[in-house]
Each structure stands twice: as C-alpha cells, then as structure tokens.
Amino acid sequence: MVVAQDVWAGSLRRLQKARIRQMDFTQLVVEVWRPPTGSVYKLNFDATVFDGNRSSEVGVIVRNSLGEVMADLSAQGPAVANSEEAEALACRKAVEFAMDAGFMDLVIKGDNAVVMKAISSPQLDRSRLGHIYDDIRTLATGFRSCTIGCVKRSANSVAHSLAHFASHLEDELVGMVRMELLAEVLEVVTWSQLGIHDKPIKQLHDSN
C-alpha cells in the first residue's frame, strides 16, 4: 500500500543553493509530514483566503501511523477579515469534522503559529476571535486524547492543497481519499492556477 507521507512535500529533501563566484553551498532542511505513533491519528488542516471577496476555503486530512488517509475534507468557508480568522474557523471545522467521523485520539496540526498558540493556551482569550478559540478547546475535550501543535507549511501541504481545491467545488467534498485522487486534486489546482480552466467541480457520489 502506498504510504502518504506527504503528496507534495514528499520525503525529506535538502535544497542546495550555489552561491555565485565560488562561494559555499547553503543547505536548507525542509520540514515534512511525519506520521503519528500507535493508534493515534494525525489531523492536518489549513485555510486559504481569496483577496477579491475575502472568501475562505478549508482543507482537512486525517492519516494513521502508516500514513494512510483515513478521512479528508474540502469545503468553502465564510468571508473573513484576515488569515488568522480563516485559520481559526478552519480549525474549529476540522475538529467538528474529526469528532463527527468518530476519531478519539488525535494530534492536530496547523501552520499558523498565532492561531495554534492561542488554541493551546489555557488562559481566557478576550480577543475578537477568543470565542472561536474557546469553542475549539471545549470541543477538544470530547476526544479521549488530543494534542495540538504547529508545523511549517512544507509539512502541511496536502491540507493546503485541499483548501485550494475547495474553491472549485460546488459542494463539500468529504470522504476517503485515495492517493490517485490526491494527485488529481493537485493537477486540477495547477490547471486553474495556470489559467487552463476555471470551471467549477462537482462531487460525484460513488455508491461503491
């Protein structure tokens, strides 16, 4: 079975950049997705915001210790004021999605450091988004175990691409994602970014 360690981040890579005029090479380590341990599942989520109408999109993917995709979500979200609000709302939707799907032991990862720090803080948040963070913390108590943390974008690229993919959907796309479908998602998003097509995409439900 193909292991989904991260479709677009790939396995651990080192990028070497040559300096001009016989200067040394600089090596940059790219953080990649790492599987959870034991019977715990890892949930990655992300949000995107489009400047035109400030609409947001959400991407969520849940994987097991083998890197196998257990569940995924691409959905359109509400208009937001900024990326922090989009990420906070995306996290709440991701937690609700995981709870509805029946996952009980989770590691939750997002790539917005401000949002993840606010969610992890035990202190009462009196900011404009404080009620959303409080909702997330309250929902998280419904899991048997739940750990929340922040990752770099390179280790969150599948969720990021699923969020981008949501802008092409007429309905939410929820279900079990095969590796072949994830590759198709990236291809469709790339076509849109290159201007090859701008048609909406509709989910076809397979009874099998």
Rank of each mutant, 00 (worst) to 15 (best):
V7Y: 14
A9Q: 09
A9F: 10
Q16E: 14
Q16D: 13
R19C: 14
Q22N: 15
M23Y: 07
T26D: 15
Q27I: 10
L28C: 11
L28A: 11
V29S: 07
V32T: 01
P36G: 00
T37R: 12
T37Q: 11
T37I: 08
T37F: 02
V40G: 00
V40W: 01
V40E: 00
L43A: 02
A47Y: 02
T48W: 01
G52Y: 08
E57W: 08
G59C: 04
I61G: 05
R63K: 13
G67T: 08
V69R: 00
M70Q: 15
S74V: 11
N82C: 15
R92H: 12
R92L: 14
F97I: 06
G102E: 08
L106W: 00
I108Y: 10
K109Q: 11
N112G: 07
K117L: 03
A118V: 09
A118P: 14
A118W: 13
I119Y: 04
I119F: 04
Q123T: 13
L124V: 14
I132Q: 07
Y133G: 01
Y133A: 02
R137P: 00
A140P: 00
F143M: 04
R144I: 08
C146Q: 11
T147Q: 04
K152I: 01
R153D: 06
S154K: 05
S154L: 08
A155N: 06
S161R: 12
F165L: 03
F165V: 07
F165M: 07
S167T: 13
H168Q: 11
E170N: 07
E172S: 06
V174Q: 02
L181A: 10
L181R: 06
L182R: 07
V189K: 09
W191Q: 15
S192R: 15
Q193M: 08
Q193A: 08
Q193T: 05
P200A: 00
I201D: 03
L204E: 12
D206S: 10
